[in-house]
């Protein structure tokens, strides 16, 4: 391999994952989510770079995976190859709630149907990971779609190109978007 001085090779995400997006989740302006779909059908849910939490040097007060009195994503346990026992999520299942220091709370959603495999507990101890590396170490959760739905599970989502289009339109139409 020719080795140039600067990085030309695509990153791990570029090489193995397809980026999908859901914008303005639940009608909330700019609350964009990103789904990284591995070629093996595993999906990693992250904040899209346009999500309000990641704008204007905001900081996080708390992250809570307890999404209701009876349901905590931290209690999720999977066993075996088939990930038995994992919570089954639909598109609008909340994964966690994030409270910013300015008092605004955001809910992060699953975006796709599938079995919850794991949530990222590291961001509980280090919320800065979410701000500094939102698409890698600051991921929210890992979801495994059903085998028979692996092709259709991203049908309602936007491709990277469509997402970029939405973002650029947003910039043109609204001088102060979020």
């Amino acid at each position: 391999m020719e080795i140039s001085e600067h990085k030309e090779a695509p990153s791990v995400i570029d090489r193995y994952y397809t980026r999908w997006y859901r914008t303005d989740l639940k009608g909330n302006a700019c609350e964009d989510h990103c789904v990284l779909q591995h070629s093996n059908r595993i999906c990693v849910i992250t904040l899209a770079e346009t999500h309000p939490i990641l704008q204007d040097g905001r900081s996080i007060k708390s992250i809570n995976y307890q999404i209701s009195a009876g349901c905590s994503r931290l209690k999720n346990k999977v066993s075996g190859k088939s990930k038995r026992g994992g919570q089954f999520l639909t598109e609008y299942a909340p994964l966690c709630r994030i409270m910013c220091t300015d008092g605004v709370e955001y809910t992060i959603f699953s975006c796709i149907r599938g079995r919850l495999v794991e949530v990222n507990e590291d961001i509980l101890k280090r919320p800065d990971l979410l701000l500094q590396k939102p698409s890698t170490e600051g991921y929210i959760a890992v979801i495994l779609p059903k085998f028979e739905e692996s092709k259709t599970v991203t049908e309602g989502l936007l491709s990277r190109a469509q997402y970029e289009e939405v973002v650029s339109k947003r910039a043109n139409q609204q001088p102060e978007p979020c």
């Binding site: 591995h38 093996n40 059908r41 190859k81 990930k83 495999v117 794991e118 495994l144």
Partner: peptide, 10 residues
């Protein structure tokens, strides 16, 4: 690893 997680236990 995520790349084998679809066929191996977590």
């Amino acid at each position: 690893p995520l790349r084998v997680l679809h066929r191996r236990p977590l």
